[in-house]
Design a protein around this nucleic acid. Structure first.
Lengths: 242, 242
DNA sequence: GCGCTGTGTCCGGCTGGCTGCTGATTCTGG
DNA sequence: CCAGAATCAGCAGCCAGCCGGACACAGCGC
């Protein structure tokens, strides 16, 4: 499987292949993006909505930084069922499995572009070398991973709520935090999430989500217009925990 | 709040306070433990079962490495309800919040020693400095965090199972992986987990856990002797997914 | 135009949460 | 080491919430 290529349109690597690590140090780079772009073998890619970034079973050899858009990591079961493990927001690092051991390992998640996505991909080896040569790189990566952990843990909190209503509300609040854009009448989540997709993320079913979202709409807490969800008042919504 | 001290018995810092980072490099340190022990300001602590390591609201200023035992991270709600966000196994890094921004931040989880615990704690500042001075430190920390992420994500998988039976089974398998010790008649989990504690981890209730564990016992898949859970055959148990 | 995906709704059945109770086990302080 | 307290485990009965399946319809792209 060379699945990592499917659905890609390569927009070219860094124009000037700077010596590993030095670029970051020289510019006094202070963002993950700068660091990743300076890595040798780094590639900037654009993936269209719905296209796969890597499949389960593909070799794990690159680390990704999500520059723009949203990516869904999911687990696919033999039954055909698919559950969402993470919805990654901008500036998230993923594919870190490849950093782990020196040993070759394979992806076990399915990574799909949930919107049109721009990402920076670098070979795990380059990342390792860059860390050795420029100490600030390690710190930035570490911070990236730390925030991924916090993000994942809030998702665990969401999922341990017993009743589906609380779970959905909690999930909507997470979405607001990660993907919400403030407008004049509340926070809008423009991910074009279907009810099915929400169900797969919080471990429920399509029908239940439809019903619960209907309740929230009737309660005047949210508005849904062509898959665009608007939360009028997150604080009021948070009171909805039962 | 100076809660980080409660319940501690300090067993002394590193005997020879080696210059930051150098210790690791000199010994060709290759484990997280070595790295952490070499940090300036590092403290090795022992915490008894049930004692708190940090409270929500405590300032987040140290990074921890769990050397021996198990630690429970949980979220406490106003209602008094408490849900488990992570059960950390040996060699897990936690308290990474302090690494994030330079800004002062507070813990929002409750960290409790689930067994008698040995841990190494180092000030976030030392960790940052060590990374700058010795590049291998950064890589080791990254690997530590990566495996934490994978661990957390399998927990999300567990929690998105719809029926409680599958959820419990999946959780038991996670416990086997993280805490199980193989014996002649299966894998034993000696965490002294009460049914209540399991319920808090997988978002269920005490009564349901009692019933489901009873079912598994009658099916001859597990044995429970004074809170010690023995899984006879993980593979057979895995077939229990509905 | 047609097909596909997504949304809204109804209903029967069962899982699992909630309450209340009892006996067993473990913990704690003297 | 013991007695009382506290926590834990097991059981039963009730009932709501949610799943499963099915169907109609709307919107959208081809």
């Amino acid at each position: 499987m060379v699945g990592a290529m499917r659905g890609f349109s390569r927009t070219g690597g860094p124009s000037t292949p700077a010596p590993v690590g030095l670029a970051a140090a020289a510019n006094g780079a202070s963002t993950l993006l700068d660091v990743m772009r300076g890595l040798s073998g780094c590639v900037i890619e654009t993936v269209e909505r719905g296209k796969t970034i890597f499949f389960p079973g593909d070799p794990a050899e690159r680390v990704y930084l999500l520059r723009r858009g949203a990516v869904r990591l999911s687990r696919v079961y033999e039954s055909g069922e698919e559950i969402t493990v993470a919805l990654l927001r901008e500036n998230s690092l993923f594919g870190v499995l490849s950093l782990l051991t020196g040993q070759r390992s394979d992806r076990f998640y399915h990574a799909v572009a949930f919107t049109r996505v721009e990402l920076v991909a670098a070979p795990a080896g380059s990342v390792r070398r860059a860390i050795e040569q420029d100490s600030s790189v390690g710190l930035l990566l570490l911070q990236g991973l730390s925030s991924r952990i916090l993000q994942t843990e809030t998702m665990i909190e969401t999922l341990t709520h017993r009743d589906m209503s609380s779970r959905l509300v909690s999930f909507l609040l997470v979405l607001c935090r990660d993907f919400g854009v403030p407008g004049n009448d509340g926070i809008t989540i423009d991910l074009r999430l279907s009810h099915q997709a929400i169900a797969e993320a919080i471990g429920s079913t399509r029908v239940t989500i439809t019903r619960l979202l209907g309740d929230l709409r009737q309660a005047g807490l949210v508005q849904i217009d062509r898959k665009k969800i608007t939360v009028f008042d997150p604080v009021a919504l948070a009171k909805r925990f039962s």
